[in-house]
Design a binder for these strands. Structure first.
Lengths: 238, 238
DNA sequence: CGTGGCTCGTGACTGTAATCACAGGGTGTA
DNA sequence: TACACCCTGTGATTACAGTCACGAGCCACG
């Protein structure tokens, strides 16, 4: 049984897919108990901001349910989405560890719960749990690699079609754990997809039309079916 | 006095500008002595590769003198330069810590010396020097921020001119420690500048002409003089 | 039920930067 | 000195994706 509010990190890990890269999953029991003492839980509706670019970090958020997008915007309102967060992901870690303003905004795209751990409590916890501090370093490193991949996507892909192909392929590998890896639930709008690959909404619309016409993929409601994965891979000359 | 080969990390720090972000500068003496025991030094000519994208990491390099560029390439030979390294910078840290293949190639652009610390020795050293392990985490975090800035540069700047202006401005802040911050020594070719901002050589040439004509800057040999910094700043709508 | 607010699809047009091509200048070297 | 090589500047052309515009579908909500 689960409390109506205040999902435990433990509870969450019992339900979320076991992935060692989840910073606070599969921890030794004493550490988990300590984490559950210092965390607080809240529910967030769609479009809620967990934190905003430029704010000083108060602590980290561990997403239990729901989804969030992490993005940065220019003054003109142009936006890049750096990543999509799901259950198990830890948000705001870079800013919290380095105590610099948030470089990103975290906004819920699907309502859900998140555990909050304040900076002080986290640092204190890490100092007493060197093993987990090491996992924090690993997580920071993963964050770096994902920003790095975004750079490659933006700078090395020549055309929007190549970028979209790359994005779709990255979704198929994300979905490996799902029943059918060629079936992907797309909860993003074309606008948001455009913001992930650095192009415009219209271009994304046209590319989907084009890919459908070329039998590369098929759309059933919010489900995207990859029909010709090799052809997509051939488009990506990374 | 300094030995002809085998520059000490200590020696280096005595000469390099004191910047706390240099991972191995300003360390407590015992740690420095230990570092000097486990390091080895080599001289690298121009165009030498310290490591290559895709290689498994053998350890980290601490640049003592000379400069290096860090870049990644696509299979077609398109290249992005992620950063330029100078004396005091530690290269290959991400790959070494996470034990994943190098995501970047490090190539000397100006000949110099570098200290090498093998992965095993480094990890052993870090385990015994928790304080310095923390500095490693900070360095990883800085690497992340710099990749993140590259994303913003590539995705949020609308035009090549905006990107070039941003790059030049970032050079002026790098050069604050120098005598005259509006004088910058440019050792990069237009081709390399293009690879830093995700455009082509010709476009960079044309932009320099344009900026010169608009009295924004002036070129004396390899020295770039910023004539109208506010105008450059106005071009950047980040 | 109708209305407002979204997404999405697509056509027409335009502008900008990539591409191609070539010439001039500098440097190192045979 | 002559040659080769690289970097730079700049013109001409082109193609591609951004922009603008508009209509259709869909859902939520009063």
């Amino acid at each position: 049984m689960r409390a109506p509010y205040g999902l435990n990190i433990i509870d969450n890990c019992a339900t979320c897919p076991v992935r060692e890269e989840h910073l606070f999953c599969n921890l030794p029991l004493p550490a988990l108990q300590k984490l559950n003492e210092i965390k607080s839980t809240a529910v967030y509706p769609k479009s809620a901001m967990l934190f905003i670019e430029g704010q000083l970090p108060r602590g980290v958020f561990v997403l239990c349910t729901g989804k969030a997008k992490l993005y940065t915007s220019s003054r003109e309102g142009k936006t890049v989405i750096l990543s999509l967060a799901e259950a198990g992901n830890v948000l705001g870690l870079n800013a919290t560890i380095s105590n610099k303003p948030h470089e990103l905004t975290a906004e819920m795209t699907e309502p859900g719960q998140a555990n909050f751990i304040s900076r002080d409590a986290l640092l204190h916890f890490l100092r007493e749990n060197g093993e987990i501090a090491l996992r924090v370093a690993e997580q920071l490193s993963r964050n770096y690699y994902s920003a790095f991949e975004e750079v490659r996507m933006l700078a090395l892909a020549s055309s929007p079609s190549e970028k979209l192909a790359k994005l779709l392929l990255s979704w198929t590998t994300d979905a490996v754990r799902a029943s059918n890896p060629s079936h992907i639930r797309v909860t993003l709008t074309h606008e948001e997809i455009a913001e992930m690959i650095g192009t415009t909404r219209e271009t994304v619309s046209r590319l989907f039309s084009e890919f459908k016409k070329k039998q590369l993929l098929q759309l059933k409601g919010a489900t995207l079916i990859i029909r010709n994965k090799p052809a997509l891979e051939k488009m990506v000359h990374s």
